[in-house]
Design a protein around this nucleic acid. Structure first.
Lengths: 141, 141
DNA sequence: AAAGATTGACCTATCAATCTTG
DNA sequence: CAAGATTGATAGGTCAATCTTT
């Protein structure tokens, strides 16, 4: 029995997790060359023009405030974003891209779309996920 | 602009990650009541009848040997699996379910399939992922 | 040397608790 | 007290280095 056949009987949610992990791994190398991670790129994307509060960022990325706080810690450490206390409400932290963050973001634009395995036809989700898994390289070790 | 519309422009890979995260979170509570996590359940599933070597488990779960080692650490700590050195090759660790692991596995069977948001029609992957995200509860905080 | 497994350092995420400000 | 943000503990992944056995 092939690996593919074995996976065909797996629950769909498990295939979804596996496919997502493989796609994230595929991005990782390319993004690392820009000093970015996938979580960091999401934030740079969400920041857009003006400064945005952390709660807002967390809600848009659909992660918890705690997660967003640490993601921003790392971006700030890499000098890609800056935090400023909202003058109107000292509880809020306003986040914005630095110039380096701007450059990294521009370089990363389009990368995700290019890297994602293309799926031409509208097939069943399971088959699509299996296709993604199948076309991803296995873990390195 | 609604949250949904905002996400509609996101790269497909990002939607995939987000959908996978939401589905994993949805499992987590139900599995926790059985003393399990999704990674642990995958291992219990893969173990089947006889003992299986860790490399084999890692390959089938498509994770690295390091990851599998730690997942098994946790299962072993919870007394759900046991490690035994292969008499024929002292480098190999053979893993098998304990009786408690057997019970947990039986209780968890079918849970994943039930929890997964059902997708009736073969639509485009993007729309399917958006549907999964849309139907998932946002992070708790 | 190569294979199997483990440990250390790190990233992304969770839950829970805490601190500060309104 | 409620909101916004942070910190601690833990799970699940990665890469890199190491240890043991073949």
């Amino acid at each position: 029995m092939s690996e593919d056949d074995r996976m065909r009987s797996w629950p769909t949610g498990r295939l979804l997790s596996m496919a997502a992990r493989h796609v994230e791994n595929a991005w990782a190398d390319a993004l690392a060359e820009l000093g970015l991670t996938h979580a960091g790129l999401v934030v740079l994307d969400l920041l857009g023009a003006g400064p945005v509060g952390q709660s807002e960022l967390a809600a848009r990325a659909r992660v918890q405030a705690q997660t967003m706080s640490r993601t921003i810690d790392r971006l700030q450490r890499e000098n890609l974003v800056r935090r400023e206390t909202d003058p109107a409400d000292a509880r809020r932290q306003l986040v914005s891209r630095t110039e380096a963050g701007e450059r990294a973001w521009v370089s990363a634009r389009g990368l995700e779309a290019e890297l994602f395995p293309s799926i031409a036809e509208p097939e069943r989700l399971r088959e699509e996920l299996l296709g993604i898994i199948r076309s991803s390289r296995p873990p390195r070790d």
